[in-house]
Amino acid sequence: MMQTISIIRSRTVVLTHRNIDTDQILPARFLTTTSRHGLGPHLFADWRYDDQQNPNKDFPLNQVDPAEYQVLVTGDNFGCGSSREHATWALLDYGFSVVISTQIADIFRSNALKNGLLPIIVEPKIHGWLTRHAGEFVEIDLQEQSLTMANGNIVGFPIDPFAKTCLLNGVDPLGFLLQQEAEIAAYEKSDS
């Protein structure tokens, strides 16, 4: 069920806005679904479409073919606000597999990692270069924790070691938790 990730090579789409909240990623009116699938068409709905639901030509997502652009570069503090995991599902359903920013909000980062969307934090200088070079190729190697930019520069990025193992090997964290049955039972016994 967990998707595995190892190496991703793709062009970038850039959204420069800071503090993009999950209400922008997926507006609340689309939260009435009971499924994890099919949210891609509503990703960034209020920025992507005008009042008549026609694509807004100025919006970067409407200028590229999602198949070639799996990496989203965004301003600081991406994914703040609501804990809706639907935001992650919408990004994945649209075709993104990586989000790069200088800061990524806590709950969003956790949701992303559990669904195989890789959140990458880079230094402001690297971020600045990436935002100035929208559409260029980047290569992400999760095993090496490295990001190779179109100018040949290679930078490292941090990732939680457990999340890394899960993503590389397709380990489901729920399976890991279920294996701790004895410890959980012992805790419950001592606590009651």
Binding site: I107, N115, L177, Q180
Partner: peptide, 30 residues
């Protein structure tokens, strides 16, 4: 739900989680 932080007013450690984690808690209470 992200506003779970509300319950912290009582000296509880209360925080919002995503839906996958909701499943984790349902299945394991952890």
């Amino acid at each position: 739900d992200s506003h779970t932080s509300t319950h912290g007013a009582f000296g509880a450690l209360a925080f919002g989680i995503g839906t996958t984690e909701v499943a984790h808690v349902l299945a394991t209470q952890c």
